[in-house]
Design a protein around this nucleic acid. Sequence first.
DNA 1: GTCTATAAATTGATAGAC
DNA 2: GTCTATCAATTTATAGAC
Lengths: 204, 204
Amino acid sequence: MKNIKHQNTEEKILDAAKEVFTEEGKAGAKMQMIADRAGINKSLLHYYYRSKDKLFAAVFKFAFGKMASRIFDIFKSDDDFFTQIEKFIENYLSAIIKNPFIPMFILGELNKKHNNIAAELIIKSGVNIDFFEDLVNEQIKKGNIRETNPKKLIINILALCVFPVIAKPLIEPIIFDNDKNAYNEYIKNRKDEITQIIFSQIKP
Amino acid sequence: MKNIKHQNTEEKILDAAKEVFTEEGKAGAKMQMIADRAGINKSLLHYYYRSKDKLFAAVFKFAFGKMASRIFDIFKSDDDFFTQIEKFIENYLSAIIKNPFIPMFILGELNKKHNNIAAELIIKSGVNIDFFEDLVNEQIKKGNIRETNPKKLIINILALCVFPVIAKPLIEPIIFDNDKNAYNEYIKNRKDEITQIIFSQIKP
DNA sequence: GTCTATAAATTGATAGAC
DNA sequence: GTCTATCAATTTATAGAC
């Protein structure tokens, strides 16, 4: 339930900040925009979050958590490995499509020269892929999949999921001749396409 | 020859602007930073480029040209199609690695809500993939490659090339445990990996 | 908690001397 | 062409009334 009436001001601010920061980037986002979008006074931003940096940190932490935390949970299910992969692609892709600005926001801020805040939050997050690596190696040993580098595998999956969404402003005009429907149709079929590519890489 | 002494002030400014804009984004880049980096006075920026918007436009045009113009020229060579694909991946990948900030810069600016300048420049650029599409369809007809959607094919190639570079600040710490050498080694072998994946998709 | 008013610093841009 | 000085607007942040 997302569009429920906001309970308190702090929530209103955070929701507005999520929108503005992800749409405009840290430098492009202005405190006034966030206040306007939240329907409150600018001073209240500082009352709840002492500074723009702190508000940004809260938003970045949320955004990164949204895309990174627990995405590997699917690999702890009872499904066979191929079903797990398929479900992972499905879940991740739909998360990106539902929040198309978030991946761009995360990558954009992390690539800024002077943004230690974002980089520090990544380290603190403690996200790691150990479980996934163990799982893949186990599947190889069992003979379920071909010899496969787990690191390379996960990067390829993420690349094929993320790029078509963050590159939409390039793909829609150049590849699909500004045909919005053609792009949407392409994205709709993307899950099956990625699954097929990945399976062809790992199936014995 | 890149590190040759700058001839004139206009070039110095543009070179500095390229660096600062691509590293910090349009909103994060400040005219003072650019002046400092160029070793000149802030006023001179306005003397040569009337406004920040105009300077940004010049940089964006250059950056987009660097990554988009003539990248399809390789498909006009006499090589057989598989060699063309391999060379394309090699060229594109090395262009990205040599200019790792540029793809992020282009995508970042295009994804900003209120950046008409960048979006307009894309349209004006006139880049299109017609030639590549014709070529792929011809190869299918000849039976050289499997039934393949050219649009999907080119997006997959670009995704596999671009993502590992723009996601470096995420991949190096999380996937490679902050091992810089491991990441570099991964990138070094990337061309062969992508080529293999793409070939497995199109070879009969 | 929420607002108005205002400070303090930053920043894009211009005027004018040389 | 290049610089200094300065303006005008923006923007983060705080003080203080209610």
